Amino acid sequence: MILKYIPLDEGMIIMDEAILKAKKIIEGYPETKFSAEEYQRFYQCVYYICTYHTSNEKMMQLYEKFRNSLKEIILSTVLPSLINKQGENLLREFVVIWSNYKLMARWLCRFFEYLDRFFIPQHIELESLDGTSFSCFRELVFKKLYCRFIEAALTLINQEREGLQIDSVLLKNVLDIFVEISDHRGVNYYQDFEHILLTEISGYYSRVASEWLLHDSSAEYVQKVSWCLNREKQSAYQYLHPETAVKILQAVRYHLLDQIAIKLMEKRQAEKSGLTTDYQEILSKCAGMSLQEGSSSSSPEEWLSKLMASSAHIC
């Protein structure tokens, strides 16, 4: 490649053309493409500036051009498209805008690639271009709206628990972004969400356990436990990581069975002393929690032990 002199000011104007066109992607035109000629022109512009103006100052100005352009696009276009939305609409726009932002950033990273190859490695305090694009979005968008993203995601999960249909694909896409955008040197946003989710689930099932013990028979209680475990299992594996799904099932089982085992056993014993109901027949109908023959004559301790063992396989 023949070395060509491009004044810095002229080069910045050329790169403004690249940035302006790339911005169309974030404005809702993801089909925006750059021709081979355009790509070559923008890449060579950065190359010529870096190789002719060998001072770090000139190359740092190009690096700042890249970073500041991302910040300007985020503040002028990305945030306004999200800031006034709530709930599912917020999550849906978030997924779209993140996809478009990454596409736009990839084009800009290709145009400024020479910095990644020859300038940034000499300055360990600088992030790569790709890392910079993530950091800008994380700091200016994600951290600002993170609590609202969590609230909207939890609302969808609670709606599904109440029997409503939700967009599980949307929810999975949002949680995948939580993983993708996490700063491995700092907060893991998915783990943070997981902790909040488990806390909320624990509170919910602790409350319903008390209500069911008060109002339902032991057989009805067991049937509800079986139904809840199967429902949570089916839901969790649709949009949560497998490790999180296991933790959820363990939490449900703990609050519905482990924590109230003695009270449930006492309730079963009291009912058995005054009722002629065939508990073996009732319990055998509980999905995934059938007991072995002879449980109708077993002691309360044996009955509960079998119940706990049969529920464990669901988790």
Rank of each mutant, 00 (worst) to 15 (best):
E37L: 08
Y48D: 06
E38Y: 04
I49V: 09
F94G: 09
T32S: 04
E64H: 15
T77M: 12
L20S: 08
N89C: 09
Q61K: 14
Y29C: 01
L3H: 04
I6T: 03
T77S: 15
G28Y: 00
S81P: 06
Q61Y: 11
P7W: 00
M59W: 13
F66Q: 10
P7C: 05
K58D: 10
L70M: 13
E93V: 13
G11A: 02
L79G: 11
K71L: 15
N89Y: 11
R67Q: 15
V95Y: 08
Q61P: 01
R67C: 15
Y48S: 03
G28L: 07
P7F: 00
N84T: 09
F111P: 12
H53C: 01
M15D: 00
Y52E: 08
R41G: 02
I49N: 02
I74W: 09
P7G: 05
E27I: 05
T32L: 01
K102R: 15
T32E: 00
P7E: 01
I25N: 02
K21H: 04
Y63M: 10
G11I: 10
R110W: 06
I49P: 07
I25W: 03
M1T: 00
V78T: 14
P30E: 03
L91T: 03
K102A: 13
R67L: 13
N56D: 11
E93S: 15
Q86M: 09
S35P: 02
M59L: 13
A105D: 14
